[in-house]
């Protein structure tokens, strides 16, 4: 039994002639928090979309929790234990917080196939528990998402991943649109996950945040991985990371990315 939760080998995605992602070899260990950094269009989101079943890869292997996987849909990935907070949030604006948390996996009182009767009370209670667990504060969980601020929406999206015991959490720029307080709140949630030993892939542009939160940084450049930096144990500065992102430096072993 290895302690590797996720591994990709030669993961590649082409959109027609555009090589969005080429030969990505990536490893994530249990309990580890890894940040993925890189310029816009460097292949970060493409990488995540292949892992989470949103898109189908051109070639390569994904090994999750010890076995090779091929997720047809995001739901397959979620069933296997990969929870993702997408950049586009994936919330239904006209529904309230419990509805969104349990969207696609509603709790039911009486099972009648598609006409199963919803257990609103249980969903509300578990929503409250999830929000308390993650320290998320929402004035009224019966509010529709439409009436919430960007930070509240983000918190709902993240709380959704925390509601279900996931084996891996992926966050795609969770604080990009948030204010200072809201960012702090999201970062608190990330720390909670770390304490609970839940592995995380964090896509972020925020250098301070990355150095505060994660163990390791993987840098993407023009669709390839160009650096793998152990920032907790090695002497790596923000300037180094910027140099990798911009292409001023390339780590030994990743020369083909240059």
């Amino acid at each position: 039994m290895t302690d590797i939760i996720l591994e990709t080998r030669d993961l590649t995605k082409h959109y027609g002639g555009v090589h969005a992602l080429t030969g990505a070899n990536f490893i994530l260990r249990k309990g580890e928090h890894v940040a993925i950094m890189g310029d816009n269009g460097a292949g970060k989101s493409t990488f995540v979309r292949q892992i989470t079943g949103v898109e189908q890869r051109t070639r390569g292997e994904i090994i999750f929790n010890g076995s090779a996987v091929s997720f047809e849909t995001p739901m397959d990935a979620r069933k296997a234990g990969i929870e993702t907070v997408f950049q586009s949030l994936a919330l239904a604006d006209e529904l309230d917080v419990p509805d969104n948390l349990f969207l696609g996996r509603e709790l039911v009182k009486v099972n009648l196939g598609p006409f199963s009767i919803l257990d609103y009370k249980a969903m509300r209670e578990r929503t409250m528990m999830a929000l308390e667990k993650t320290g998320v504060k929402i004035p009224n969980i019966r509010n529709k998402i439409r009436n919430m601020s960007g930070g509240q929406r983000q918190c709902v999206a993240i709380a959704r991943t925390a509601t279900f015991h996931s084996k891996l959490t992926i966050m795609d720029e969770p604080t990009a649109a948030l204010g200072v307080q809201e960012t702090a709140q999201v970062e608190n949630i990330v720390r909670t996950l770390k304490e609970a030993g839940e592995p995380l892939i964090l896509i972020s542009h925020n250098m301070r945040q990355v150095f505060d939160l994660v163990d390791r940084v993987v840098v993407f450049r023009r669709g390839r991985i160009c650096a793998n930096l152990d920032i907790k144990n090695e002497d790596v500065t923000g300037e180094d990371v910027v140099a990798y992102i911009t292409g001023a430096k390339t780590q030994a072993g990743y020369e083909d990315a240059a």
């Binding site: 239904a92 009648l112 199963s116």
Partner: peptide, 27 residues
């Protein structure tokens, strides 16, 4: 009652509200 208290109703509202979100949620 169906629209308000069943999975069918909830999914109907979800799809009308944000079809992509509904799809990503596994509906």
């Amino acid at each position: 009652l169906i629209l308000k208290y069943t999975v069918y109703g909830k999914h109907t509202y979800a799809i009308g509200s944000n079809e992509d979100a509904a799809r990503m949620s596994g509906i």
